[in-house]
């Protein structure tokens, strides 16, 4: 992590996972997961499907009956968590425009009454940052997958978060969207926002993350990407029987 790049002290929290266990029904999803996410860093989580990445994020958001100690150390009074889900499930025929969606996510006023004057500038700015300003009157169902993902990114920006939780944001993004995302990631790093980021694209992780954790039910490695993303470790991470391998 390049602390010198920060303009000032990180505004994002440090996250401490200590011995997190998660069992749903009879399935053990997480087993003694312990690692730290440094304040203001971009922390990637990689791992196979069903490895518990999304469950870990839901645990962080307080939606799972986990065991163990999960602590967020906030440096300031601002405690906003932004969350960008993997995908949005809704009926494609739903007559909901991008503006309606943003209104529903960002304001208390009912969306059918239009954008609230208080959040309108923030919504304009967020849509501009993801390059969706000219498509704000389009139906959500009529957008492409990448455009929809950009709108999801935009709602994660309001109000300005100190911790961003991203669940595979790049999987649906088109090339322009990936550029937008990289710019956003850069600005978050600049402002000291902590980013917890689930990603499949290991190339992108190598290029953009400060630290990477390999998760397949348990933590298999937790190191800077250059050290962590070696062929042996990746082979063991994505192997069918990763638990039989020794921890890297």
């Amino acid at each position: 992590m390049t602390a010198a790049a920060h303009l000032d002290a990180p505004s994002g929290p440090r996250i401490e996972f200590a011995g997190i266990d998660l069992t749903l029904g009879r399935t053990r999803i997480l087993e003694q997961v312990s690692f730290n996410v440094a304040a203001g860093s971009v922390h990637a989580i990689v791992g196979p499907n069903g490895g518990g990445k999304s469950s870990l994020i839901k645990t962080l958001l307080g939606q799972m009956p986990h065991q163990g100690q999960l602590t967020l150390h906030w440096p300031s009074a601002l405690e906003v968590i932004g969350y960008v889900p993997q995908a949005l499930e809704f009926d494609r025929g739903l007559p909901m425009t991008v503006d309606d969606f943003m209104a529903a996510m960002c304001q208390r006023r009912p969306a059918f009454l239009g954008l609230s004057r208080r959040v309108q500038p923030a919504i304009d700015a967020a849509l501009a940052r993801v390059g969706m300003l000219d498509k704000r009157k389009r139906r959500m169902g009529a957008l492409s997958g990448g455009e929809r993902q950009r709108v999801l990114l935009a709602q994660g920006l309001i109000p300005e978060p100190q911790l961003l939780v991203l669940d595979e944001p790049m999987s649906a993004l088109d090339e322009a969207g990936i550029q937008v995302f990289e710019q956003l990631l850069h600005s978050w790093r600049q402002s000291g926002t902590t980013v917890l980021w689930i990603e499949h694209d290991l190339q992108a992780v190598l290029r953009l993350a400060d630290r990477v954790t390999g998760l397949s039910r348990q933590v298999l490695f937790d190191a800077p990407p250059v050290q962590a993303l070696t062929p042996e470790r990746l082979l063991s991470l994505f192997s069918v029987h990763p638990r039989s391998e020794s921890l890297a």
Binding site: P13, T59, L60, L61, G62, Q63, M64, P65, H66, Q67, Q69, L70, T71, L72, H73, W74, P75, S76, A77, E79
Partner: peptide, 12 residues
């Protein structure tokens, strides 16, 4: 000013 927030397990 810093604060440690413990995420409590979800449950009924």
């Amino acid at each position: 000013m810093s604060r440690a927030q413990v995420v409590r397990p979800a449950g009924a």
